[in-house]
Nucleic acid binder design. Sequence first.
DNA 1: TCTTGGCACTCAATGGTCACGAGTGCCAGA
DNA 2: TCTGGCACTCGTGACCATTGAGTGCCAAGA
Lengths: 338, 338
Amino acid sequence: MLSERRLEVLRAIVQDYVGTEEPVGSKALTERHRLGVSPATVRNDMAALEDEGFIAQPHTSAGRIPTDKGYRLFVDKLAGVKPLSGAERRAIQSFLDGAVDLDDVVGRTVRLLAQLTRQVAVVQYPSLTRSTVRHVELLALAPARVMLVLITDTGRVEQRMVDCPAPVGENTLADLRARLNSRVVGQRFTEVPRLVQDLPESFEPDDRGTVSTVLSTLLETLVEETEERLVIGGTANLTRFGHDFPLTIRPVLEALEEQVVLLKLLGEATDSRMTVRIGHENDHEGLNSTSVVAVGYGSGGEAVAKLGVVGPTRMDYPGTMGAVRAVARYVGQILAES
Amino acid sequence: MLSERRLEVLRAIVQDYVGTEEPVGSKALTERHRLGVSPATVRNDMAALEDEGFIAQPHTSAGRIPTDKGYRLFVDKLAGVKPLSGAERRAIQSFLDGAVDLDDVVGRTVRLLAQLTRQVAVVQYPSLTRSTVRHVELLALAPARVMLVLITDTGRVEQRMVDCPAPVGENTLADLRARLNSRVVGQRFTEVPRLVQDLPESFEPDDRGTVSTVLSTLLETLVEETEERLVIGGTANLTRFGHDFPLTIRPVLEALEEQVVLLKLLGEATDSRMTVRIGHENDHEGLNSTSVVAVGYGSGGEAVAKLGVVGPTRMDYPGTMGAVRAVARYVGQILAES
DNA sequence: TCTTGGCACTCAATGGTCACGAGTGCCAGA
DNA sequence: TCTGGCACTCGTGACCATTGAGTGCCAAGA
């Protein structure tokens, strides 16, 4: 087990390295932190920390930098979540309050988060599967063509074209609209398939084909949109990554363009639990030198989606975690109000 | 006026420089192109081209690279639009055909364009002001709360919350919905304000407040959404910019995150006319070493929005222009079908 | 047993010198 | 007007010495 002082040395190394972006040596450490011991003692501690794999040397005659394992210990044991200043909180609130619709909320959130953390921000749209139905609308565009519009309690709207096997009467459509809504409004999306299962049977035989077609499009929409929509922003912050970043930045940008990777990135964060993935803890190879801080947000007590930031492993964890948490809370509030 | 051969030399320089990314000298030129003259002659031509400002030397003992003015001449006079191969055309078609809704069309387009040109792609959503109304839906969410949903002929959907001054009866809402739709469906968005102007007067005095509120939200939506939505992709391609790009890539990424800048970028491209903005021809300072190739696309004969790519001034103009034009055409077709 | 000062050692970074060679401009001759 | 020849420029890369931050280890002290 590591002694108290060695943990203190690790904390100092992480803080200095995050600040200066340069390997930190024993002498500099004792000068910048009141450790109460001499550089030689710190060197011994450093050697021990290196043996345990918490820090490493880029080359023999250089200072030490934290390893992924070192950051992990720092985040788990040594660092808290730094609360935002009052000014920052007010800025968040006023920035988000101006939003006019869901797209706007998400757009503003991503910009806000990127600006606040000076890193890349990722925000997921409220998930369909965890939302409830607010309304289903059916519009006849042509005799055998129907537009299906799906509205969620979080304000998200999805639409689909439906080509029907036969012309649809306005009465039939109105009938279907009414019955469909009476069954599904207020229900969770996951319940919808069960709730509409027997609906075609209650229609005239002539209309059953059409009804089935519309319903199956509806169900398809639910499935497809389970692959959630994401918005990212602040990619310009990637340029602050490091000096050598031609090789670093490329795979990160590539990873950020793949929905699948991004979704995995946000991972199993929940409303209450913030996740921090550090360096190699990310499955994706291109993200081996980045860390991800993510948390769920929701309109009620429950998370409907996630948001987070992606930055270099060498990031200000307490500050970033504070910003992510605060933004998630405010977005949750905004959604609950709408 | 420049002689025929000097233009030929310029063309060769542009082609070689685009290929190799290195300044090209007189000797290499005569070896790689059948100019029929000696290096010494080419040197004279180069000196002339440099006097005219079409090419420049990074330093005394280096080859020449084209200037913005040189690329301009190349694009205007020396290069055509390179048509895509059959395989490429088929790939475009099959890739876009799988799209399920407008979001998907736009998303696929941006990925396709980025992949095809290996540059950053920008696609604008079909503009509201140039579209026509397909349907307006009003939903009562609470006694005094209405959701307004606006659907365009290009499949775009916008929604807004409306807080009414007084509770709204379902009858009133149905009435308003019907009258509103009968007036505006099939009309251009720019016409809508005129068409609904006198609508409140035809309602009972009690309901006029509500009707006015709903209508003013509708009009607001039209105005707000005139600032169009854009999607970008392929930012990872920025890493192929050059060797020195820490300084180059930063302002580009920043510029790409600003809607306003992007919209200006797509500029006055129209359906028929493709625009090419080279280097300093872009107003935005961060984009001084990039070129933009943009063109309008539309469901009918008319452009409803624009798309394009952003890349280094040193780009393959004929190929890029070919890809941009082809993608715009296919997207237009897809939209016309939906 | 832990801490400390001293000391020799390592090695990246810095800067200077030098040879190389791609590329140029200019000129005289065809 | 084109061409071959030639002297000149200057960025590049190799080589080398210097410097200094940082280390590991050891012996002495608390």
